[in-house]
Amino acid sequence: MSERSAHSMFEVTDLSVRYARGEAPVLRDVSLTIDRGESIALVGDSGCGKSTLALAAIRLLPKTACIRGSIVLRGDHRAMPVDILGSDERAIERVRGRRIAMVFQDPIGSLNPVMRIEKQLAEVLRVVRGASRSTARRAALESLDRVGIADPIRVGRAYPHELSGGMAQRVALALALAGEPELLIADEPTSALDGIVQAQIVELIRETQRQTNLSLLLITHDMAIAKSLANRVCVIEANRLVDDCPIDQLTASNRHAATERLIQAAEFKRSAAITLMERTP
């Protein structure tokens, strides 16, 4: 094994995706490495292909999609490397939820609408951890408690539509973390949420990462969120990865034009408020 693999836990090499033969590619030759415990933000406008990368990472793309390149999950010492694109379906099923978990933009839509929260959680815990029926329920309530839900018993008995957006996103996070994954893919986890709740979820993800050495692949269009969670930012523009830089070098002058544009767009709103506050005595 090379020196690099000691640190990197997830490698995407020259990934190209098109949804059907003959269509324009959604991703072109994207290469990306995530080290253990690292948080990477994938930033770009909608339609640039960033969600496709997330779906490809757990092989949830439609069967008709044409994929080239490779995605390898190296993981830590306890598990073998997995070739995500080349393995058979059963091997991938063992990876999903257990080693790579995903949180989606629409939290309520990503939960089963006809199942109580605690039952959904218990189900996942039984599958990924092999918990027994009786311990699964207790573990479900514990995991709700861990994602900062003040009243786990009441929330556990609720159906998804009875929850607020922030609460549902916490539940979705609890579901994702149930399998103690090595990599969490968060696809726009806060863009459907209001300011206060957004801040709460950002803080929760940050706290979870601190406790569990989780690697994070954050997908967002908002550079402000990327800055608040990631330590490296990858910018995608027009289906290509155009920039990849550590967070502290974002302000450096020689950045790609797309990066500059995204930074400026994020600062546009803030700047108006700041100038307003500075102008008034």
Partner: peptide, 10 residues
């Protein structure tokens, strides 16, 4: 591990 074309996926 990397194989450039995965026949199952095409």
């Amino acid at each position: 591990i990397a194989n450039p074309t995965n026949p199952i996926l095409w």
